[in-house]
Structure formats: structure tokens, C-alpha cells
Design a protein around this nucleic acid. Structure first.
Lengths: 248, 248
DNA sequence: GAATTTCATTTACCTATGCTAATTTGGGAA
DNA sequence: TTCCCAAATTAGCATAGGTAAATGAAATTC
């Protein structure tokens, strides 16, 4: 299984080879996107929905004064299915944060995949649930964690999410955010991101250089963050009846 | 159509009487919940999912130091379908903020409703999309809006959401949050909520007394908030113009 | 209707983070 | 290799919002 989306889904609930093939076909129409290029513009009709196959992208909103808030990070294997609707204009923009490969899948094909393959339906439903949990956690981050905790939490989350699709190498992973991007994820200023990044370094928790992040002391980092990975975990093995599939 | 959930869904895409009946049946198992009582506890198995029929509830997380962040407000007609998964433990808690009526619907029945009635499926999908948009907007609120803007934005959002189900009376509506609750929604302290609430009052934008909120100058309030209701709107509507403002 | 609890309000003081602006670093382009 | 530009770093000052503690005003309860 090479397809990142299939890997991501199969992490939430098991997929067989046929499922993986179906997913792979969904992703057949893909495109290379350079860093800083738009994957989706505000107001675009979402006739198709994006699936990240390689690279990172950010979903964001721009304020009147020009400041930006990133509302979600799309890592390899992430898709915008539930956030989009055929013929509905997008209300957020998405940019590639590094050179990426993005598939543009059709809603119809996905709907058909979900309906014809209950395991895919279950996996998608569960994937959607986890995405919601991630968003809720981001609200908690900006609302109630201070800058250091917030930063530590995001690093833990990124690690956990990348680990699901095998994109970590020990405790290291590719982390393409600039400090400006990082600030827009955390709701901070770039200057403050710099300060707190150094604090994490000085405290011996992480190492970050030329977009390569190494978590030196994972336990300590999770302690700082108050990170509990439960929210990212798949559902317990559900009694897989025909009825529990997401038939939308 | 009396069922709040049916009203809410039919706002996102039209439902006929039969659809409404199906929805109504889904809600047959309902329960009265007193203010401050749990609707869902952390770790509960979500064999059923809650639907608000009357009253307000809050979805929240508690931090190590005891502080709380509310990650979503459940208004009449709101449901936790996509955030839940049969047999999966809840990771957030939900409390009633005022005396409420909550239906507990079964996943199986809902799945069947979605499958047998395409209009319900479409409405649910669209409802889920809007809920995601609301969450994203909350991230933007806490991340990039200052206290006053944030507060104004939430009031605008509450008004718009209540208007969808006909729970506003002119520019007034029931607003049961205490200042402590409000603080936990906005990621502020109760003291600061008090300060900013008074500012909104002194500037002649709102009136709030014994849980009754009146928006005195809606346009000005939206200006302060930088509120753009587009994200709450159903799919497939004409592009935003002055007169399509929620049709209110 | 007195007692009690919950909410709202106010004040004074404090700190985490923002803001501005200058300087340095480093990785790619030529 | 050199240059160049985006990114990172540093410093000094400014402020929005936090903290703590006390008081007043409404609701609830008995």
C-alpha cells in the first residue's frame, strides 16, 4: 500500500487490498504543486476535493488587517472530503507549504466508493471524526494553552499524525513550516515563535534545523504540552455490521 | 415542522414532510436535562448520539490546571452525529447550559435514514460541512481576533444560528451563558469578559440582561466582529448580496 | 422572607505576548 | 563561488489581557 490516503484511512479502520485499489483509483488525477502555490482559492467551486499524497499544505483564513490564521494542516494522506460540498464555494484557501503532490478526487466517485464498500465508509466516517477532534483540540490550544504548551502540543500532534502513515524516522521528521507559518498555526507572532522555539531547544526537548525536526525527549515534550494522543486514535474494533456504514 | 433538528437540517437543504417524519422518529427517545447537568461524560461509549431539541449545551475540554475551553455550542437543532462513532468513547464532555431537552438517537437508525432518503443524506452532509466551518471560524476567533472582536463575532454567530430555526424575536434572543461560560467559549477570563461586555453596551451595540440578548445595531456589531455569514449558509445559494442575509 | 448561593462588577496590579526595527544566517540561483 | 533574498534572531518598549480579592446584585432554596 503506497497511497498515503489509503494508509491514513487504514489506520482508522482496516482496509483490504480491493479497498486500497479503489482509493488508489480515486487519486488517479493528481498534480504536482510548488511550495507557496494555491491548492484552492477562496470562492472556488469545489467540484472535486483535494487529497494530499505528498507534502504539507495549510488551510487558512485572512483577516481584514492582513493577518492570517491557519485552521488546519494537511499532511500526506489528508483529504478535504467532509469540509467540501459539490458545487459549494470554498470559504477557506489552501496553500502548499512545500513541494507537494495533490490528488483531486470527484465527489461522485468517492460517494460511490463509500456506498459500495462498507469498510471504506467506516474508515471515512472515522477519519472525519478524528479530524473534528483535531480541530476541537486546536481550539483548546489557542484558547487555553500558553505559547510554549501550544507549540509543544502541535509538535506532538504532527509527530503522531505522521507516524500513522510511516513518515517518521525514529524521532525525526520533515517539518517544512517557516516560523511565520508556525506563528499562523499557533495564533502567535513570528518573533514569539522564535523565542519559544529556542526555549524548547535549550530545555533539550527538540532539535530543529533546515526543516528537520527531531524530538529529543518525547515524554518531556508531551508533559510540557499536556499531550494525550487518545483523540487521534482509531475507534475500538466496532461490531462491523452493514448498518454502521456511512452511506452518504 | 416542530422538530428543531428537522428545521436545522431543512435550512441546509430542503426536506419534505416524509423526511421530517423520519427525523422526528429518530428523536423519539428524548430526555429533559437540568442546567449544569451532563449530557455526555468523558469516556462514555457513544452508543447513541445526542440531538438538542431545546436549550443550549456546551462541548468542552478541561485542562490540567482546571481551566476549561468550550469547543462548541450546541443550540436547538444541533446534533453530534459526525463527531461520534458507535462504540467509540467520547473524548469531550457536554453539559447543558440551561434546562434542555435532548434526544438520543441511534446510529443505526440515522444511517438507515441517510441511506433510504437521499435528501436527508444531502442535508446531513451539508450540515456537517457547516459545523466544520464553524469550528474553523472558532479557531480564527481565538487565534487572531482580539477580545472585543471575538465577543462580537460569537454574538453574531449565535444570532445567525438561532435565526435559522426561528428562535429569534426581532433582534432579541435567549442567551443563557453566564460570564464564566462566555469566558470559556472565548478563551478569556470572566473579568475580561465583563469589561468587554460593558464596552459593547456602552457603544450601543447590544443590550443583555437576565439572559436576554438584544442586538441594538446589527450592522455595527458585524463590523466590529468582522462577521461574514457566508460560512453558515447552505450550499448552492446565489452569491452573497445584501438581501440574501440569511433571509432574516 | 431570610438565608445562601451563584453571578456580575470593580479595582489595582502584573505578565505574557505583541510590536518595531535592526542584524545575522543560510540555502539556492547564477 | 559569489550573490541574494528569504528566514531567523535579537533587543527594547508597549499593551491586552490575566490575577487576586473584595463588593454588590440576583436568583434559589428552605
Amino acid at each position: 500500500m503506497n497511497n498515503a490516503f489509503a494508509k491514513r484511512l487504514s489506520f482508522t479502520s482496516p482496509l483490504d487490498d480491493d479497498d486500497a485499489d479503489v482509493i488508489d483509483n480515486l487519486c488517479s488525477r493528481d498534480r504536482r504543486v510548488a511550495a507557496k502555490r494555491y491548492i484552492l482559492r477562496d470562492g472556488d467551486q469545489m467540484l472535486r476535493f483535494p487529497i494530499m499524497l505528498e507534502g504539507w499544505a495549510a488551510c487558512y483564513q485572512i483577516m481584514r488587517n492582513g493577518s492570517r490564521q491557519i485552521t488546519g494542516l494537511l499532511l500526506p494522506g489528508d483529504a478535504l472530503y467532509f469540509d467540501s460540498y459539490p458545487d459549494c464555494p470554498a470559504i477557506e484557501e489552501i496553500v502548499a507549504l512545500c513541494p507537494s503532490v495533490v490528488a483531486f478526487a470527484s465527489h461522485e466517485e468517492m460517494d460511490r466508493a463509500i456506498q459500495s464498500r462498507p469498510t471504506i465508509g467506516r474508515a471515512m466516517r472515522n477519519y472525519g471524526r478524528i479530524k473534528n477532534a483535531v480541530m476541537a483540540t486546536w481550539i483548546v490550544n489557542v484558547g487555553r494553552r500558553d505559547a510554549l504548551e501550544r507549540m509543544a502540543h502541535l509538535i506532538c500532534e504532527a509527530f503522531a499524525r505522521l507516524a500513522m502513515i510511516g513518515e517518521v524516522d525514529g524521532n525525526s521528521f520533515h517539518f517544512p513550516l517557516t516560523q511565520d507559518d508556525f506563528a499562523d498555526v499557533l495564533g502567535l507572532t513570528p518573533v514569539h515563535v522564535n523565542r519559544k522555539l529556542q526555549q524548547l531547544r535549550h530545555e533539550g526537548l527538540i532539535h530543529l534545523r533546515s526543516k528537520e525536526m527531531t524530538i529529543i525527549d518525547r515524554y518531556a515534550l508531551q508533559q510540557v504540552a499536556g499531550f494525550d494522543e487518545t483523540y487521534l486514535r482509531p475507534a475500538r474494533e466496532a461490531p462491523a455490521t452493514e448498518d454502521t456504514l456511512l452511506g452518504i
